[in-house]
Amino acid sequence: MTPTLTRRASAEFTGTALLVAAVVGSGIAAARLSPTDIGLQLLENAIATALALGALILMFGPVSGAHFNPVVSAVDWWVGRHAGTGLTARDLAAYVPAQVTGAIAGAVLADLMFGLPAVTWSRTDRTGPNLWLAEIVATAGLVVLVFALARTGRTTAAPAAVGAYIGAAYWFTSSTSFANPAVTIGRTFTDTFAGIAPTSVPGFVAAQLAGGLVAIAALAAWYPHAGNAADAVVVPHPTRESETR
């Protein structure tokens, strides 16, 4: 990797790690602070996640775009490939492993911060057509949102808008809106409030990828020139041209 791509991949690793640490850590704290109230636990988890996501986009967006999500990165590559914008295939090959390993590191970090074993496989089964449908909806909505913001020049609103969407989707989707294959994989490494059993991962990831395809179709209908703004997803970040300067 070039120095610039290495820097961007490290930002994706760290940002995704901190995002998963926020998801898992706030789930552990919520379960301890409100042990008899599941609704309150979910509210605490959702608020902490939404606020952390917004802050992490502000922190890492100017470096890598703050994707933190293989579906966002894959769609960024796909819609930008003809316009010469967005991620290259080489970028994508660096971003996705960084996001997945970052997510795993974030779950381990959260467990250690709360005095738990570094790795305990989750036993929380999350499976069924209703949950898969929810993941399609959550992922498609997230991807369309970030591309709509980029295409219409409103990326300054991304931290608040993306955080708000994820916080709300905790509640309007039956799956509590994982909407991210890397985060899904990372959450298998913790048997806590936010965990998901490894056996449930294939269904969730397949649904998330399907959500990405739905988003591509929606963008073609609603924002046919979204690829022109792929360098600004989630927020403006180094372009192919700027790497060589």
Results as ranks from 00 to 15, higher is better:
100 V>P: 14
11 A>V: 05
225 H>S: 15
93 A>F: 06
245 R>A: 13
142 L>H: 03
47 I>K: 07
49 T>M: 12
83 A>C: 15
173 T>A: 09
234 V>W: 01
75 V>L: 08
33 L>D: 14
188 T>D: 07
41 Q>V: 04
90 R>I: 09
28 I>L: 07
91 D>K: 02
45 N>V: 06
124 T>Q: 15
81 R>V: 14
64 S>E: 04
113 M>R: 13
218 A>W: 05
130 N>W: 14
65 G>I: 03
181 P>G: 04
230 A>Y: 00
144 V>S: 06
244 T>I: 15
15 G>H: 03
206 A>N: 10
21 A>Y: 13
213 L>H: 08
16 T>Y: 06
57 I>G: 05
210 A>V: 14
212 G>V: 03
210 A>E: 10
172 F>W: 12
60 F>Y: 07
130 N>V: 12
105 A>D: 12
199 T>G: 15
189 F>D: 05
18 L>W: 03
199 T>L: 13
62 P>I: 00
84 G>K: 01
229 A>L: 03
231 D>H: 06
121 W>M: 12
224 P>F: 06
173 T>C: 08
191 D>M: 02
181 P>K: 00
48 A>K: 03
242 S>L: 07
227 G>Y: 01
237 H>S: 12
90 R>V: 09
146 V>E: 00
109 L>E: 05
118 A>I: 05
153 G>E: 02
9 A>H: 02
135 E>Q: 06
114 F>H: 13
115 G>A: 11
203 G>A: 13
29 A>Q: 13
63 V>R: 00
43 L>D: 11
147 F>L: 02
226 A>C: 06
145 L>V: 02
148 A>K: 01
230 A>R: 02
87 L>K: 04
147 F>E: 01
67 H>S: 08
184 T>C: 06
185 I>R: 03
27 G>H: 03
167 G>N: 02
228 N>M: 13
240 R>A: 11
93 A>Y: 03
222 W>C: 12
101 T>A: 15
119 V>L: 08
61 G>W: 02
61 G>A: 10
6 T>H: 10
240 R>D: 10
45 N>L: 09
79 V>M: 09
49 T>H: 11
19 L>A: 09
192 T>K: 05
60 F>Q: 07
133 L>I: 07
117 P>A: 07
23 V>D: 05
114 F>S: 13
175 S>I: 03
50 A>M: 08
153 G>R: 00
5 L>I: 12
219 L>P: 01
209 L>Q: 07
110 A>H: 01
57 I>K: 04
77 W>Y: 12
213 L>N: 07
118 A>C: 07
190 T>N: 15
4 T>F: 12
112 L>I: 11
131 L>Q: 02
104 I>T: 04
234 V>E: 04
136 I>N: 12
233 V>D: 04
55 A>R: 00
95 Y>K: 05
127 T>H: 14
218 A>T: 11
241 E>A: 15
166 I>N: 06
178 F>V: 15
3 P>V: 01
